[in-house]
Nucleic acid binder design. Structure first.
Lengths: 341, 341
DNA sequence: ATGAAAGCGCTAACAA
DNA sequence: TTGTTAGCGCTTTCAT
């Protein structure tokens, strides 16, 4: 910086002021400084300035993985938003318990970020408390955290609407397929089951635990087994609500192999609206993780820049059902209401 | 830090030494310092230390998007690796040309990272030059960059092997389906086409441009059209090599709708081996972006820590064909060799 | 509108 | 093994 100052024939302070865009610099001086900076290929060191300003210019995010449509979309929209605000994005990928323990042990984000976005983690009380005295705003994304700022999709309402869509088509035996063990996503999973149950209850359809099955989307065998379980019931379902599009896709695939026509013999409903859904022509409950990323980023910037801001705000994002080709009226629904009994 | 020093009854230097794990600290002093640090919830400020050490403890990565299996896998393995080395990962997401221009204008990574990993970008000469005098190691990941350290998958060989697999099954009319415009991935795309052509040439099968078609995986219409184009040929192909699993999946979907049996009437080969491939039972050419991320991270650490290291190393990662259920001998391959003419 | 000087929190070189 | 001192590159008063 001294070099630039010398070259421009001004003091370091002036260079600093110019490069930060302060208005109190005369036009010709500004021009000279900018020219000198360009010629010397000079850039301000964040390290040095944050030392004095106390701000790092960094937003940290904690994610269980990057390898999913959901996280990828969220961060892909967060990134450009932060860059527009001249902030950097640093990512902590915490795939397993060991990493998690070490993260909370060291809290590497401490003093190295202006805000932390925690994605999709079911934190323990202790972990939450640990983050509380990190000395920076901590936002919870894709999960509801009591008394702390949170941004998440309304999974309960989404699942309720989705289930209603099936009910409106005339389905009464509706199965729900969960995808267990997706690390970090149990919050949503639970909420979606709840929404499904609420919708059934509202419609006066009795809950039946044997209609709730689980299988990881990646495990074809498990999906086939879960399906077998459902088909083996005395009164098998006419529709399945899969809690994620990938699971729905796996299910459709399995149904096709079993020569069960979708939607003629079985309706399938997903949740997410990933690109996948479109080419499976899958009816699904759409959510927008990229919107979530944007909103979370904006809230983070707000909390950083304005300590007066409401630090407990909850932003709940909407979902909507996208009807496509995998759901239809159940066969013979005109006559079959609840059976003659 | 002064607080910790006072509380432990030592000097700041000793605190610094202790917290950095230097051996020249007596056990009891170390214990006192660590206790004090814990009690005060103290952590070293990276900003301050990097100011004096000249190292930031940050590895920056430049990615076109995070929203793909490929990038997600690569970063998911890079993250933990860097954390193990006590480094942070900062991500620059550059989805479009405007962002790209502004990135290269400001070069925000300058002075704020110890190394830069450039993923999947076809940089212009000028951009490359710009990165060259960034004053830090710049690695090119998932692309070959002449005279600069690169880590990438051997797409050419992969496509060659994949094509050979089809040739060995007896196919002679083999189409190649490209996925245009996937921003940042044109390097791989081009390499795979080349591998396909090489394999055909080696086998003495004449190249036929009408067998090379393009469609984005996300666009069902385009996929259907491309397929129609192939089927409308005077001698339609008996196999299609799709340059990505997602495209292969879309293609299979389209074939099923057209009641064309896979693999009986048409073999389909993918490239990637995403989880998708498994539940489509898709024969594919496997690559490992997570391995690529790991290797790139290791090379980056090496270049950071050891300025003697070979700064022009190319690491080429292998691929292998995974035979599954979507490829088979062409119908009537026993009789049909090259036709009677 | 500009400059001089002090200091942000840490590490490194030196001395003890 | 420990403490003292200087200074990393910047921003921010306070003068002018």
């Amino acid at each position: 910086m001294a070099d630039v100052a010398e070259r421009a024939g001004v003091s370091a302070s002036t260079v600093s002021r110019t490069l930060r865009g302060l208005s109190s610099v005369s036009p010709d001086v500004r021009a000279r400084v900018e020219k000198a900076a360009r010629e010397l290929n000079f850039a301000i060191s964040r390290q040095a300035s944050s030392l004095v300003t106390g701000r790092t210019g960094v937003v940290a995010v904690l994610v269980p993985t990057l390898n999913s449509w959901f996280m990828g979309s969220a961060l892909s929209s967060l990134g450009p938003l932060l860059r527009a605000a001249d902030m950097e994005l640093t990512v902590y990928v915490i795939p397993d318990l060991a990493e998690r323990a070490s993260f909370f042990e060291q809290l590497p984000a401490r003093r190295n970020a202006d805000a932390l976005l925690v994605h999709c983690f079911d934190l323990t009380e202790e972990e939450g408390a640990r983050l509380d005295d990190l000395g920076m705003p901590v936002l919870y994304v894709s999960q509801h955290a009591e008394g702390r700022p949170s941004v998440y999709v309304d999974d309960v309402a989404g699942a309720r609407h989705g289930t209603r869509h099936l009910l409106n088509l005339g389905h009464r035996r509706i199965a729900f397929m969960q995808s267990p063990g997706a690390s970090g996503f149990s919050f949503s999973s639970h909420a979606r089951l709840l929404g499904y149950q609420q919708a059934l209850a509202e419609a006066g359809v009795p809950l039946d635990d044997s209609l709730v099955v689980a299988a990881p989307a990646a495990d074809k065998r498990a999906v086939a087994e879960a399906l077998g379980q459902l088909l083996g019931l005395r009164r098998p379902p006419t529709a399945v609500f899969a809690e994620q599009d990938e699971l729905a896709a796996a299910l459709i695939w399995t149904l096709r192999r079993a020569r069960i026509e979708v939607p003629e013999q079985m309706s399938v409903l997903g949740f997410d609206d990933q690109p996948l859904a479109e080419w499976f022509d899958l009816t699904t409950v759409a959510q927008s993780p990229s919107e979530m990323g944007r909103v979370a980023g904006e809230l983070a910037l707000q909390l950083i820049n304005d300590s007066e801001a409401d630090g407990k705000r909850h932003i709940v994002l909407p979902t909507h059902v996208i009807p496509r080709g995998t759901t239809a009226r159940p066969t013979g629904s005109a006559t079959e209401t609840e059976g003659p009994s």
